[in-house]
C-alpha cells in the first residue's frame, strides 16, 4: 500500500513538473512583454531577461526530448560509422 502511494506521489510530481515547465515557458515571456509595454526602458530590460529565460527553458526541454528519442540511434551510427 505504502509503495503504491509512493508511486502515485512520484507520478503526481512528474505530472505537475511537466505542466509547470510548458506553463512557465508561455507565461513568463507573455507577462514580461505585458510589463515591457508599460515601463519603457525597464520593460525592455525585463523583456530581454524574460526572452533569454524562456529560450533557455525551451532549449532545455526540447533538447532533453530530442536526446531521449534520438540518443540511442545516434550512438549506433557513431559506433558503426
Amino acid at each position: 500500500m505504502s509503495n503504491r502511494n509512493d508511486g502515485f506521489r512520484a507520478v503526481r510530481g512528474r505530472v505537475s513538473t511537466s505542466r509547470a515547465v510548458p506553463a512557465s515557458i508561455f507565461v513568463v515571456p507573455l507577462s514580461v512583454l505585458l510589463v515591457a509595454s508599460v515601463f519603457g526602458e525597464f520593460g525592455r530590460a525585463a523583456a530581454t531577461v524574460g526572452f533569454v529565460l524562456a529560450e533557455a527553458l525551451v532549449l532545455y526541454v526540447g533538447y532533453g526530448v530530442l536526446i531521449h528519442v534520438a540518443g540511442p540511434v545516434a550512438r549506433e551510427i557513431l559506433v558503426s560509422a
Binding site: F42, A45, A46, T48, V49, F51
Partner: peptide, 12 residues
C-alpha cells in the same frame, strides 16, 4: 543582463 539591456547594449 537587466542592467546592460537598460542601455540597449545586448544583441538579443
Amino acid at each position: 543582463t537587466f542592467v546592460y539591456a537598460q542601455f540597449n547594449a545586448i544583441d538579443v
